[in-house]
Structure formats: C-alpha cells, structure tokens
Measured scan of single mutants.
Amino acid sequence: MQIFVKTLTGKTITLEVEPSDTIENVKAKIQDKEGIPPDQQRLIFAGKQLEDGRTLSDYNIQKESTLHLVLR
C-alpha cells in the first residue's frame, strides 16, 4: 500500500509499505529515499509519536495515510 510522509519543509514523500511493516522499517525506507538517518527521524500520526517496534497496523495506519516527519 502507499502512504505519504510530509516533511517540515512541506515536501511529501510517497512510500510503498505493508501494514505489517514496523515503524523502524518505514524509517529505513525514508533513509533510502531521503538520506536521513533513522535516529534523527520522528514520525507523527494523528498527533502521536510512533514507536520503532510497533507496526503500521498497530496504529491503524491505512493506505494513503499521511505521516508527519520531524527531525531531531
């Protein structure tokens, strides 16, 4: 499924993921596309910060959901 990741600069990254993918996994995909190390990434969905060990389905993230990427 496709999800979108919006950065603070207003750029939107499109990722191909599975509901069973972990947040860690998603961060690795963002690193592949954008070169941002996962340890600098914070992903936010519905106002919650997403934890590395959880999966997209844990957070009920469905196709075409938009996550927000904050760098630390």
Results as ranks from 00 to 15, higher is better:
20 S>K: 07
40 Q>N: 10
70 V>T: 15
12 T>H: 05
51 E>P: 03
42 R>K: 14
8 L>Q: 10
5 V>P: 00
60 N>R: 08
15 L>P: 00
21 D>H: 10
47 G>K: 07
4 F>H: 09
26 V>E: 00
9 T>H: 08
2 Q>D: 12
25 N>L: 09
69 L>V: 12
63 K>V: 04
17 V>E: 01
23 I>L: 12
29 K>G: 08
33 K>N: 11
67 L>M: 08
34 E>T: 08
38 P>Q: 11
25 N>Y: 13
1 M>I: 07
46 A>I: 11
55 T>M: 12
9 T>S: 14
11 K>R: 12
46 A>N: 07
31 Q>R: 15
59 Y>W: 06
6 K>G: 14
66 T>F: 06
56 L>H: 00
30 I>H: 00
2 Q>P: 05
27 K>C: 02
72 R>F: 07
1 M>H: 03
16 E>C: 02
46 A>P: 02
16 E>P: 15
32 D>L: 08
72 R>P: 13
39 D>V: 04
26 V>S: 01
36 I>E: 03
57 S>T: 14
52 D>F: 12
70 V>F: 11
37 P>V: 12
9 T>W: 04
24 E>G: 13
70 V>M: 09
56 L>M: 12
23 I>W: 01
14 T>W: 11
62 Q>P: 10
22 T>K: 13
27 K>G: 02
38 P>K: 10
11 K>N: 15
2 Q>V: 05
57 S>F: 10
51 E>S: 03
43 L>H: 01
59 Y>P: 00
64 E>R: 03
58 D>V: 06
39 D>I: 05
57 S>R: 08
44 I>Q: 14
68 H>L: 07
72 R>T: 14
27 K>M: 14
59 Y>S: 06
52 D>E: 03
47 G>T: 10
53 G>F: 15
3 I>G: 00
7 T>Y: 12
48 K>P: 02
1 M>R: 04
37 P>N: 08
9 T>D: 09
51 E>K: 03
33 K>Y: 12
6 K>H: 07
55 T>C: 02
37 P>K: 08
57 S>G: 09
51 E>Q: 03
46 A>F: 10
37 P>F: 10
52 D>P: 04
44 I>H: 12
44 I>D: 15
31 Q>F: 08
10 G>K: 03
71 L>N: 13
16 E>Q: 14
45 F>R: 03
5 V>G: 01
16 E>I: 10
33 K>I: 13
63 K>S: 15
21 D>K: 10
4 F>M: 14
16 E>S: 05
54 R>A: 10
41 Q>C: 02
45 F>Q: 15
12 T>V: 11
30 I>K: 00
53 G>L: 11
46 A>K: 05
20 S>Q: 09
20 S>N: 13
37 P>W: 13
72 R>W: 12
19 P>S: 14
31 Q>V: 15
41 Q>A: 14
52 D>W: 05
52 D>S: 13
20 S>M: 09
64 E>A: 06
59 Y>C: 02
65 S>W: 06
16 E>D: 06
72 R>K: 08
4 F>E: 10
42 R>E: 09
32 D>Q: 06
30 I>V: 14
53 G>C: 02
69 L>I: 15
42 R>W: 11
70 V>I: 08
57 S>C: 02
60 N>Y: 07
25 N>K: 04
69 L>K: 00
10 G>D: 12
16 E>T: 03
52 D>I: 05
28 A>G: 09
37 P>H: 10
33 K>D: 09
37 P>I: 12
66 T>M: 09
21 D>T: 09
5 V>Y: 03
30 I>S: 01
15 L>M: 12
25 N>V: 11
35 G>Q: 15
30 I>C: 01
67 L>I: 03
55 T>D: 06
5 V>A: 04
62 Q>S: 15
68 H>A: 14
58 D>E: 14
62 Q>V: 06
7 T>G: 05
1 M>Y: 07
63 K>H: 10
27 K>H: 06
36 I>M: 08
69 L>D: 00
58 D>L: 08
41 Q>S: 09
27 K>I: 15
28 A>M: 05
57 S>W: 10
47 G>N: 09
2 Q>F: 07
40 Q>Y: 07
24 E>N: 09
40 Q>I: 09
53 G>K: 09
15 L>H: 00
17 V>W: 04
67 L>A: 03
46 A>Q: 06
49 Q>A: 10
66 T>H: 15
28 A>W: 11
52 D>H: 14
49 Q>H: 03
27 K>Y: 14
33 K>R: 06
56 L>I: 12
68 H>Q: 14
28 A>P: 01
59 Y>M: 08
51 E>W: 02
63 K>N: 05
13 I>S: 08
18 E>H: 10
10 G>I: 06
18 E>K: 10
32 D>I: 13
38 P>R: 13
29 K>P: 00
17 V>H: 04
69 L>Y: 02
70 V>H: 15
45 F>V: 06
48 K>T: 11
8 L>A: 06
19 P>A: 12
47 G>R: 04
24 E>P: 09
18 E>R: 10
22 T>Y: 07
68 H>D: 14
19 P>R: 10
1 M>W: 04
32 D>M: 07
56 L>V: 09
71 L>S: 14
48 K>D: 13
22 T>D: 12
38 P>V: 08
23 I>N: 01
49 Q>N: 13
68 H>C: 03
51 E>A: 05
38 P>N: 15
32 D>W: 10
13 I>C: 01
67 L>C: 01
28 A>F: 13
28 A>N: 11
53 G>M: 07
70 V>R: 05
31 Q>W: 07
29 K>A: 09
16 E>N: 09
15 L>W: 01
23 I>G: 02
4 F>P: 01
45 F>H: 09
54 R>F: 14
6 K>N: 15
14 T>Y: 14
60 N>H: 13
70 V>G: 09
40 Q>C: 03
39 D>E: 08
24 E>S: 04
70 V>P: 02
25 N>F: 09
61 I>S: 01
38 P>Y: 05
10 G>H: 12
30 I>R: 00
33 K>C: 02
65 S>Q: 13
65 S>K: 04
32 D>S: 06
10 G>A: 15
14 T>V: 08
59 Y>Q: 09
39 D>A: 12
63 K>W: 11
14 T>F: 07
45 F>G: 13
36 I>R: 06
69 L>F: 12
54 R>G: 13
36 I>A: 07
59 Y>T: 03
67 L>D: 01
27 K>R: 09
30 I>Y: 07
51 E>G: 03
61 I>H: 01
11 K>L: 07
5 V>M: 05
42 R>S: 15
71 L>Q: 02
35 G>F: 07
5 V>Q: 00
18 E>S: 14
3 I>W: 00
47 G>W: 04
38 P>W: 15
43 L>C: 01
42 R>Q: 07
17 V>R: 00
37 P>L: 11
13 I>P: 00
16 E>K: 09
61 I>Y: 01
66 T>W: 14
24 E>L: 08
3 I>A: 01
56 L>P: 01
68 H>I: 05
17 V>S: 10
2 Q>T: 08
30 I>N: 01
9 T>Y: 04
56 L>R: 00
63 K>L: 09
27 K>A: 03
56 L>C: 02
31 Q>K: 09
44 I>R: 05
21 D>R: 05
34 E>R: 01
29 K>R: 08
62 Q>Y: 11
55 T>Y: 10
19 P>H: 07
58 D>M: 06
34 E>H: 03
60 N>Q: 15
27 K>E: 01
54 R>I: 13
41 Q>M: 14
64 E>Q: 04
14 T>L: 10
19 P>Y: 10
55 T>L: 11
54 R>S: 06
68 H>R: 06
15 L>Y: 04
64 E>K: 03
26 V>A: 06
17 V>T: 08
25 N>Q: 05
51 E>R: 02
